[in-house]
Write a protein that binds this DNA or RNA. Structure first.
Length: 854
RNA sequence: GCCCGCGUGGUGGAAUGGUAGACACAGAGGACUUAAAAUCCUUAGGCCGUAACUGGCCGUGCCGGUUCGAGUCCGGCCGCGGGUACCA
């Protein structure tokens, strides 16, 4: 007897699809289009099981949409610039370009056997000159539109290696290679004016109906619109150049609880004081220690230094407040100065306690006691009782208090109400080699000059006048590459230096979705293609991109629209978003001879009684459930699973069991079981001819088939792939047990093949051809259920007594409430519970449940 | 620290505010077989009770609330994960 042989059928059907150009996306105005996109991968070297899960989900959607009549675009590419390539070159020599393209080749070779319905002719990598050259063209257009500018910003500075560090390269406040404490340093950097779009990006979130609420909430909070008061404290005995300190506050209602003013160590006043006072200078230096991340700054011990200066309270000129320099105030936020209200801010409370500053409560809970051992920080929507208020009602919400306070201050000449956003401009400069060069030059005579478009692309140099670039030296190789760096000014023709900063890799990933519509065009996009294919109808990717990547992409679509590269209709590029969970796996860790942690691949570790051991018997520490990450070696390679069981098993397995949006802990035990099931399905089709022509239960089987059509479709439509698979198991069991005749079984099996085809396309094709299906199943129309076959005549109603299930009755589906009630009262369990009395309440939810309250 | 999620049997998980544990995995028992593999069948949250069950109680991280009814809604905790603007 023949058996299910994926290693034979999978290549066979893949070539059949290729020969028929099934997945080639062509503009076709006669059909509705559907653009499915999965977030493209970073070419880390090998695909892991998380990729398989991500792309299989997209493939299910793509194949399903295709069979329901859509002209589908389903492309794939690589987010190929970035640090790991340079790190690899640093660690083991070679060139980032070679490393990256080798990885891409390997990963494509690993992906193709999965049988994804991808139009591979559209593939590109963001490090292709063809791609980043067009990105440079757009940069110039955006520069011309005033969407790009330069300003100072702080970076992590390694004072030993004399180089800029990424946040990831700062470990416990120290440089990852030098181990030296990191400092914050100011550099002139390039910025996109994303803040011009704060209001637009915020407001438009409400129209993203097919985005997850959690993502929308995160983006709203990130943009962080707030109304507050900006005003100035006047300085007592003001030093030269500084007679006032401008502050911004979102809680002007707490002004009477102010007890100090804090300024950033980078505030102009702080700098001026530092110039004359060594103690202040030393403290400012101290404040600049540590990394630039919000987390590092927020978690660092709060330090302050009294400058000796005081300022006058705006409502009471006799009330003077001390001025502190503090390490938790950033020059980048607001005005770089705040007033502290310890009573209603925990950070200020801790600060005040540490430096012996007064704590004046402005409001108290409406009910209950004020706990003076901590700050009282209710949400602004909460109603509180003002005890040191100065505007509005005594009892009001924080929001009302803020608004009244702003009005009062404006009326009394103390500052003005201001709407501010937390969202900062997007710094795109990176002091690194492996990224898209920023196409400008620095000319002594003309200043910063954009390159001419005809000089694009500005290509990254591969070597250094025939010599390999040395990546082992810290710092940006472009800075020390004279023949690349020295150029002529496009404006005056004189000697000039190229900009050596490259672009943040988020720029690359902010428009690739648009490029896929015309991937090899000599302009960034092509009007007709963008108009036809945009927007992305379904975008699928990890929740870890909920804020930055998605927000930057939303901004870029707007900027591309304004520079003529996208139509108005594509300003909001992703119609629907689905965020799938991550695949996690335990990390196996030992300590190496050098005292540093050593990570081991899952296949190197043998598990016994919940403990892990290496082959030589060494016990490993098991860190449970972490995101699969190359640096931790806890990635699972799907290639082995595909080799052993085939792509369909891998695809079926990653879709079953877990809901797509949830993280899954990877265990290999289920793959074999999935394989067994697919073998069983295959045999059902292969053995059809042995089924007698006549049988019993044809009608039941037909009903089951229509029910399966309905339920599986519903699962796919709602991203409940695991639910669809559970229904497919059920349907398979029904077919296997059915005694129906051959043609009824043929219909059921063809339906099964079609319903499985988005998940296990090769198996489905093979069944389809065995069962006498016409053409390729990949091109067959999706089955739709006959409504009449879905109607159930009777329903089972559970009977609850006081909310607990006691019995059930079977009634016709549309039995009126009154009759159900009558039946219920005759029920033995109910009679027993009532004990002759009558029910307190009788709730009948038609078709659902009955609850008797006694 | 702050923002956003998640928490259900031995395991993955199911459940528009309406029968908690669908569907699977691992397990146990059985059939077939000289044997094994493969395949098929039965069983299965916990505790208690019964000759038997159509028996009772408990149970969705913890505490409290709303409701005829809460895994689901609300409030407060605990634990875990993601993001935190230079990882992608």
């Amino acid at each position: 007897m023949s058996r299910y042989a994926p290693s034979e059928i999978e290549p066979k059907w893949q070539s059949a699809w290729n020969e028929a150009d099934v997945f080639l996306a062509k503009r076709d105005e006669s059909k509705p289009k559907y653009y499915v996109l999965e977030m493209f991968p970073y070419p880390s070297g090998r695909i892991h099981i998380g990729h398989v899960r991500n792309y299989t989900m997209g493939d299910v959607v793509a194949r399903y949409k295709s069979s329901t009549g859509f002209n589908v675009l389903h492309p794939m590419g690589f987010d190929a610039f970035g640090m790991p390539a340079e790190n690899a070159a640093m660690a083991s020599g070679g060139h980032p370009k070679t490393w990256t393209y080798n990885n891409i080749d390997t990963m494509v070779d690993q992906m193709k056997p999965l049988g994804l319905s991808i139009d591979w002719t559209r593939m590109f990598a963001t490090c292709d000159t063809e791609y980043y050259g067009q990105q440079q063209a757009m940069f110039l257009d955006m520069l011309e539109k005033g969407l790009v500018y330069r300003k100072n910003a702080t970076v992590n500075w390694d004072p030993v290696d004399m180089t800029v560090l990424a946040n990831e390269q700062v470990i416990d406040g120290c440089g990852w290679r030098s181990g030296a404490p990191v400092e914050r340093k100011e550099l002139t950097q390039w910025f996109f004016k994303i803040s011009d779009y704060s209001e637009d990006l915020l407001e438009a979130i409400d129209h993203l109906d097919n985005w997850p609420d959690k993502v929308k909430t995160m983006q709203k909070n990130w943009i962080g619109k707030s109304r507050g008061l900006q005003f100035a404290f006047s300085i007592v005995d003001a030093p030269a150049h500084h007679d006032r300190i401008e502050v911004y506050t979102t809680r002007p209602d707490t002004l009477m609880g102010a007890s100090f003013v804090g300024i950033s160590a980078d505030h102009p006043l702080a700098k001026e004081l530092a110039a004359e006072n060594p103690e202040i200078a030393a403290f400012c230096e101290e404040c600049r220690k540590g990394g630039t991340t919000e987390e590092a700054i927020e978690k660092a011990e709060k330090l302050g230094l009294n400058t000796g200066l005081t300022v006058r309270h705006p409502f009471d000129t006799a009330w003077e407040l001390p001025v502190y320099i503090a390490n938790f105030i950033l020059m980048d936020y607001g005005t770089g100065a705040i007033f502290g209200c310890p009573a209603h801010d925990q950070r200020d409370y801790d600060f005040a306690t540490k430096y012996g500053l007064p704590i004046n409560y402005v409001f108290a809970p409406v009910e209950g006691e004020l706990n003076e051992a901590e700050a009282f920080v209710p949400t602004k929507s909460e109603t509180v009782k003002y005890i040191r208020g100065f505007a509005g009602e005594e009892v009001q919400t924080g929001d009302d208090g803020v608004n009244s306070a702003v009005d009062f201050c404006e009326a009394n000449g103390v500052g003005h109400g201001v709407t501010k956003f937390r969202l900062r401009d997007w710094g795109l400069s990176r002091q690194r080699y492996w990224g898209c060069p920023i196409p400008v030059v620095h000319c002594e005579a003309c200043g910063v000059v954009p390159e001419k478009k005809e000089n694009l692309p500005i290509e990254l140099p591969f070597d250094e006048d025939g010599k390999a670039i040395d990546f082992s030296i810290p710092g940006n190789p472009l800075d020390r590459h004279p023949s690349w760096r020295n150029t002529t000014c496009p404006n005056c023709g004189g000697a000039a230096l190229r900009e050596t900063d490259t672009m943040d890799t988020f720029v690359d990933s902010s428009w690739y979705y648009a490029r896929f519509t015309a991937p090899h065009a000599t302009t960034p996009t092509v009007k007709e293609d963008a108009e036809y294919w945009m927007n992305v109808d379904q975008y699928i990717g990890g929740i870890e991109h909920a804020i930055l990547h998605l927000l930057y992409s939303r901004f870029f679509a707007r900027a591309m629209n304004e520079t003529g590269h996208l139509p108005d209709s594509a300003r909001e590029p992703f119609d629907a978003l689905f965020t799938q969970g991550m695949v996690t796996h335990a990390i196996y860790k030992t300590v190496g001879a050098d005292g540093r942690p050593k990570y081991h691949y899952p296949e190197e570790v043998e598990l016994r009684d919940g403990k892990g051991f290496l082959k030589d018997g060494t016990e490993v520490e098991i860190v449970p459930s972490a995101k699969m990450s190359k640096s931790k070696n806890n990635v699972v390679d799907p290639v082995e699973i595909i080799k052993q069981f085939g792509a369909d098993t891998a695809r079926w397995f990653v879709l079953s069991d877990s809901p797509p949006e949830r993280d899954v802990e990877w265990t290999a035990s289920g793959a074999e079981a999935s394989h067994k099931h697919l073998g069983r399905v295959w045999r059902l089709a292969a053995d059809l001819d042995a089924t007698p022509e006549q049988g019993q239960g044809d009608d039941e089987l037909m009903r089951a088939a229509h029910k399966a059509m309905f339920e599986v479709t519903q699962g796919i439509e709602s991203f409940g792939f695991n639910a669809s698979i559970a229904k497919l198991y059920g349907f398979t069991n029904t077919i296997a047990k059915s005694k129906a005749g051959r043609e009824a079984k043929r219909f059921a099996l063809k339906t099964l093949a079609q319903l499985m085809s988005p998940m296990t396309p090769h198996l489905a094709e093979d069944m389809w051809s065995m069962l006498g299906g016409e053409g390729l199943i990949a091109k067959a129309a999706w089955p739709t259920p006959d409504e009449a076959m879905l109607v159930e005549d009777t329903v089972t109603l559970p009977i609850q007594i006081n909310g607990k299930r006691r019995d059930e009755i079977s009634v016709p589906k549309d039995m009126p409430k009154e009759e159900v009630e009558k039946l219920v009262l005759e029920n033995d369990a109910v009679k027993k519970a009532l004990d002759g009395g009558s029910p307190k309440k009788l709730i009948v939810v038609p078709g659902r449940i009955v609850n008797v309250v006694v």
